[in-house]
Design a protein around this nucleic acid. Sequence first.
DNA 1: ATGCCGCCCGTAGGGCGA
Length: 257
Amino acid sequence: MSITLATWNINSLRVRLEQVLAWLQEHKPDVLALQEIKVTDELFPVEVFTALGYHVAVLGQPTYNGVAILSRVPLKDVVAGIPDYDDPQKRVLAATVGELRVICVYVPNGASVDSEKYVYKLQWFDRLLAYVKNTLTAHPQTIILGDYNIAPEDRDVHDPVAWQGHALVSPKERACFEALLALGLSDTFRVLAPEDNSYTWWDYRMNGFKRNHGLRIDHILATPAVMARAERCVIDKLPRALDRPSDHTPVILQLSA
DNA sequence: ATGCCGCCCGTAGGGCGA
């Protein structure tokens, strides 16, 4: 018996609903964290997930952002957003699943390094860091999964030279990611599947997927207590090859029970 | 590269993503 958790930026739940349902039925994860659902709480189709045996926590928003957590067991102590941070952008959702504290994150994109959005990204990440630090003191078994919009190293980038100077790979963003790891978290893919040039996102434009022009920006981070149970972390590239795909593809972590 | 593609809202085309 094992526990499987996954993360997937689906870039619109309404457009990708059938793909998500099919993926759930095939992989039967215990937990699926979704980002960029781009739907309000009211329009989130809770019932179709309930019918598949999933409990749902949603933090929705019209048009942009929005996150959700699906779980086979009831979600407890749900916390929407980062406490004491009045951010109109809905990017963080936490819940307890069995013994695991799960935080679903959709880190801001950052646009370009000279933009206001980049400033927001760095400030936002400081808030996330403080929140995670607090969470870890109370929950030794914590998993933080989602779209971090940061490629941690050059080996996570198809063309590091072309990306130099852009958001998602800048030294300041990479320092943010390192600061998370410095809290004691592990990048589960790097530890369990350390092959280079493995990506979770490919640009829609210029045949990015066919040419494997990708970035590894979706991550599952885990505390030492979780790592002791971690058996496997894989990127499932298949959904990216479907018709009308998300530009991201799922990352899956398997734990021993 | 002010480009490419796709989604949202809303019904044209700009905002946004990465």
